[in-house]
Amino acid sequence: MEYITLITGFLIILAGLWAIMTRKNIIRIIIGFVIFDTGLHIVMVSIAYVRGGTAPILDGSVSIADAAQKIVDPVPQALVLTAIVIGLGVTALMLAYAMKLHQEKKSLNIESFKDLKW
């Protein structure tokens, strides 16, 4: 199972990269970043998976003594947990920039922003 999710994650990463590099609309570029984020999180969580493991929460089904044999790896899960929240903040920041850019030029096409080119 973890192979399939790993391959799915990598393919979604590549799709997001393709969206970032080829689309012209700024909103679509931001959508590409969101897709990239999702793929990255899937890859990290599937690396953490241990075959036949349960969630790293020690309630009635998993006792303290055999925790190390039964649970999946909790460290990448904790990292992904914070990364998702940061992703929301960064997406909101990019969208605020996009809104400001649209107010300046009345256009969302990335090719109409050539102020620093000469």
Partner: peptide, 27 residues
């Protein structure tokens, strides 16, 4: 859903609340 299958309920909750709810609303 995929996170839930990969035994990561914490991540699944966060993704369901943030990735599909709040991000879409901001967009």
């Amino acid at each position: 859903i995929l996170y839930l299958l990969l035994a990561a309920p914490d991540v699944a909750m966060t993704e369901a609340a943030i990735g599909s709810g709040l991000t879409t609303i901001i967009f």
